[in-house]
Design a binder for these strands. Structure first.
Lengths: 226, 226
DNA sequence: TGTTAATATTAAAAAATTGTAAACTCGGGC
DNA sequence: GCCCGAGTTTACAATTTTTTAATATTAACA
């Protein structure tokens, strides 16, 4: 089962929807709690400390939007994922929701399949620990979840190995990564490749980025500088 | 060189294998001792105090398994890494080897590259030692993880040997390091270089730092002062 | 003060390491 | 099959580091 152990809180004022979603998410292995309005949601959130909260925008007591805003002011919920549910086609709502700190939104009527897929995606994205976080180093941006690198808003396409190598180096700017260390982290423990392989990849990264951000430390390794 | 200073004991009853592995590991910078059977291995282990022991499972006198068990009963070898070598595909042997306290195993026929990679991995894992700590001595700062030296906020670029030599001297200010000691620690035990080599490096360090922080003790060696 | 052994300095040779271009491998898509 | 691209290897040039060798200087001591 997929969602093993992850806790989800669903807040919606329509019992039918609540039931359907709870049923489906539970079946996926998530631990599901429900709330019937905004205040209830805030309460249950504090008590159960969910990994992800699904909020209907239209709710009594407090709207999903308000709940979202309140949650985001509390450090306790800084990392908590929030998914907005809305019956409105109104784009401005979506945008406002995202601005308020929601991580995703899904339109009503909700298809359980779509919801499960989005929930899975969100959890997965936040789950791959720090390695999925977007890195910004000066004019360089690295987005591991999207596999994208930008230099001064210019997007650069890197091959997989190149990307992983750059990602490794940027993960600890200034630290010298020994060639062996690099082989380990990027190529894996028992993969055997020649020594020049690293150089060639470094070269391609330097070339593609058009940026001198990787220093050679002769006889030792490479380090990212800014 | 990578495996600087680390001691490895290889025990195998096949001279050919012994020779190949010794050659390759030595070339990586390890200090290698060999043993031709189980008893020999136990003896040499006590004498040389290796950081890692490579044991063939099938050996005369005592099997690798037995050697492993005996070693593990002695506190002296509690931290010593043990890598098992086996011609058997028998999974149960692997498992038993690991249960007995081996840290890893490699199947025969052994590829030197694979072995080197595994050995490196094992040593690295156990290695997170103090050598990564930033040293500050007055207006001098040495950061081994970044391979950087600064004097009064001015960054000085040292080559590898220069850096290692400075790092060694700085690690114990005031202590006089004999020329032999220096050769051992920085160049490795069996590297043969002339005596003037040290002088030349010392000179370069003094020159680059622009700081008189290394004292000559005539007829003895050098020491770091502040 | 002169002698001597040890170290400092310097330049040049040797070795090691990396940069680079080009070729090769291998799997997937057409 | 053929082509393409990622990944790797190869071979060699370019560069830097390390070592050597030759000479100068220094410190210790008779």
């Amino acid at each position: 089962m997929e969602g093993k152990g992850k806790k989800i809180l669903i807040a919606d004022d329509e019992p039918d929807i609540l039931e359907v979603l709870q049923y489906n998410l539970t079946r996926e292995g998530y631990e599901v709690t429900t709330a019937k309005d905004g205040d209830d949601a805030l309460n249950k959130a504090k008590i159960t400390q969910p990994d992800l909260i699904i909020l209907d925008i239209m709710m009594p007591k407090k709207s999903g939007m308000e709940v979202c805003e309140i949650l985001r002011t509390q450090p306790m919920f800084h990392e908590t994922l929030i998914l907005m549910l809305t019956a409105l086609n109104d784009e401005s709502f979506h945008i406002k929701g995202l601005e308020n700190g929601a991580d995703d939104y899904v339109n009503k009527p909700v298809s359980p399949k779509v919801l499960i897929s989005r929930v899975g995606a969100l959890l997965r994205r936040s789950n791959k620990d720090a390695s999925e976080k977007i890195l910004k180093r000066g004019n360089l941006t690295i987005d591991p979840s999207r596999f994208e690198v930008t230099v001064d808003d210019r997007q650069v396409v890197l091959a997989k190995k190149e990307f992983e190598l750059l990602h490794l180096l940027t993960s600890r700017p200034g630290k010298v990564f020994l060639r062996n260390e690099i082989l380990h982290q990027v190529w894996g423990n028992d993969v055997i490749v020649g020594d020049r392989t690293i150089d060639v990849h470094i070269r391609k990264i330097r070339q593609k980025l058009g940026l001198y951000c990787i220093n050679t430390v002769k006889g030792v390794g490479y380090k990212f500088v800014n």
